[in-house]
Structure formats: C-alpha cells, structure tokens
Simulated assay, not measured.
Amino acid sequence: MPMKKKPTNICCFLPDEIVENILHRLPTKTLLKYKIVCKRWKSLISSTSFKRLHENKSLENPVLILFSRQEGKPFLTTVDLSGAVLDRWDLASIGLQNSAFLPSPFGSDNLLCLVVDMQRFFVCNPSTRRACQICLPKASMHCPSGISKASFGYVPDRNQYVIVAKFKGRRNWRMITLSRDDVVVSAGNIDERWKIIKDSARYRVADGSPWGVFADGILYWTGDADDRRCLTCFDLWEEKFFVVLLPDEIVMIQEYQDDDQWLVELNGDLHLMYKKEGQQDIELWKLDGAGDWGWSKQDMCVAGFRARFGAHFRPVMMDEKGEMLVYNGGFMEWYKLKHEVFRMGGKGYKNIHCHAEDVILDFKLHIDTLL
C-alpha cells in the first residue's frame, strides 16, 4: 500500500529574505496568527528588525481607528482608507464601557489613550491589543475625585509617552510618563509616577475643550488669559506651560462660542479652523512655532464648508498637494482647497461606517504596527 506523502512545509525551503519580504506586507492581526505556523516564523515575526520593517511598510498605508458606539457599547474598529474593516475590538468586554477618546499622536510608535469613567487612563496598541491602565494619583489626605482635563503626547528623543491632566479637587496639573515597555509588559505600579507640575494652577482651559491636541512635541488646549482667548500649551520636553494668543481677527469676536473654532493637527503642525461670525465660511490658520508663535493664514477660505458638511465634519489629514481629507459623519471626501470642489475619483473613501448601527464619535490615523 503506497504511503501517503506528508504535506510540504513551506517554512523548510523558502529563504528568510523571501519569507520576510512576503510577511512584512501583511496586517498585524494576520501576523499574530502566523506566529503559530512554525518556530521559524515565530522567531522572524518576533524580531525587532522585522517589526521595524513592518512598521516602515505600514507608514506608507495608514489606517483609521474609529471610536464608536453601537447599542451603548464602545468599539475600536480598524479600517483601511478604502473602508474595509480590518479589526473590531469590543471595549465593553474588557470593562471599558464608559470611555472617552483622547487625541493621540500619529506616526511611528503610536499608541492610543482612552479616559475610562473619568477615573483612569487606558493606553493601548489597538493592533496588538496590548495595554496598560493608569489610575489617578493617590494622596495621604484627599484623593482627586475625577479627571477634568487631559491630553496625551509622545517625546521621540526620550521614547516616552506623556499624559498631562488636571484633576477635580486639585489646583495644579500633573503629568506621568511611560514607555512602550509599560504597555508591552507588566511594569509594576505605574500610578506612583504621577508628579505635580509646579506653578500650573493659573493655566486655564475652556470647559468646551477638555481634551488637548498634540502637535510637534506640544499639547494644546483652547484657554483664556486676562479675558482674551488663547491657547494653553504644555511643552513636553521642557515640562512647562505657556500661552499663545490667537490671531487678532479671531480674538476680536465679541461673542465667542466653542464651536466657532477647532484645533487640529495636520502634517505635524497645529492648525486652527475658524468659522467667521454670522457666516458659514471657514478659515484655516497655521501656528508657526520655533519660538515665534505667530499665526499664518493659509491659502484657503472654504466657502460654505460647514453648511455643506454639517456639524459632524472633521479634517483627517492633508496630503502633499495641499488637499484635505474630511470626515462627514458617514463618509470621507478629499477637498481641493484652492478650487473649492470635492472629488471622489481614485482617492474617495465612501461608507467608512463599518456597521450601519454605529455612531462614530472620534477617530485617528494609525500605523498598524507590531511594536
């Protein structure tokens, strides 16, 4: 009786270079499954050099992390820029029922931060689902009663993530630093690392913008100083607060409303989107750093932008041609700034709603990485 041939194991004869060239193009979720194919693949996928190769490839094709609710449950859903669902994470299943989404840095080594029950922070890599939780600082007499304001950023020179927060019942702001190892492996009691930021009590943040925006090493909130609208800023490297005044054209508005302006990070720089009083036009202002902290009005005035998109519009990214990808509550379109026309063509991303019942609350560009 002829003996049956054993199935050929592709691990045995393909050179490492070929296997690596194939695998590094795959999404993280697939690679995590492929680690159990054989010991050789597990060793290859687990190596630091492969993880960096995979990350560099992923930088060419960023994905979107959608923070949404369906029937009251929060989800993190990963979709590519064609709208295809890559992964879906039920946060309620791990005790994160009441969560808020902090704007998070985009780029290599990017993590995501959530505020849970206004009592703790949840920092994770949604691609691998590795995470750590950070509780409020403890005090000998009075503990803070909850999180009031917060922001999340990254200092590449130190390879550190930073959370800066203001707690209810506390005058001064506090900060905590963590490394990627704190998320990847158990790092003991991270909560003990909270430290007080000296002389920070006088820096105020508008009630309508509790979550700051990160751009180029600085955290930004909408604030006020001497009854004048400004940005309350925190330098992650210097670990100190400072104030940047808004452009005169904006500050002169007598009746200010929080929905008249939006802070967004585009291509690493902070931008201010501002709606003219009594109009639907929107202007785009860029903050010029490097110590000058001046504002430059960009070569655009988006006529009827808010009227066309409604209250849910959000800028997502700007490409090298100066065109902006905008989210409209149900789909995304590229906006050609100079000509004020929309185009779909090859770069239009319709129907990013991965589930019709989902209500998308926030999102971020993300690098699908094993790190």
Rank of each mutant, 00 (worst) to 15 (best):
I10E: 06
I10S: 08
C11M: 12
C11G: 14
F13S: 12
L14N: 06
P15M: 08
P15I: 09
D16Y: 05
D16L: 07
E17I: 00
E17P: 03
I18V: 14
I18R: 09
I18C: 07
I18Q: 01
I18M: 10
V19Q: 11
N21K: 12
N21R: 11
N21C: 15
I22C: 03
I22V: 12
L23M: 04
L23K: 01
H24I: 11
R25V: 05
L26T: 02
L26E: 04
L26G: 06
L26V: 04
P27M: 08
T28R: 00
K29D: 12
K29T: 09
K29R: 15
T30N: 02
T30D: 05
T30M: 00
T30Y: 01
L32F: 06
L32R: 05
L32H: 03
K33D: 12
K33C: 13
K33W: 09
K33F: 15
Y34L: 13
Y34T: 09
I36T: 09
I36L: 11
V37S: 11
V37P: 08
C38D: 10
K39E: 07
K39V: 03
K39C: 06
R40G: 00
W41H: 05
S43M: 14
L44Q: 05
I45S: 07
S46P: 13
S47K: 09
S47I: 09
T48S: 10
F50T: 05
F50G: 05
F50Q: 03
K51L: 15
R52I: 13
R52C: 07
R52G: 02
L53N: 12
H54V: 04
H54Y: 00
H54P: 00
E55T: 10
N56H: 08
N56S: 02
N56Q: 06
N56A: 02
S58T: 02
S58N: 10
L59F: 01
L59T: 02
N61W: 10
N61A: 13
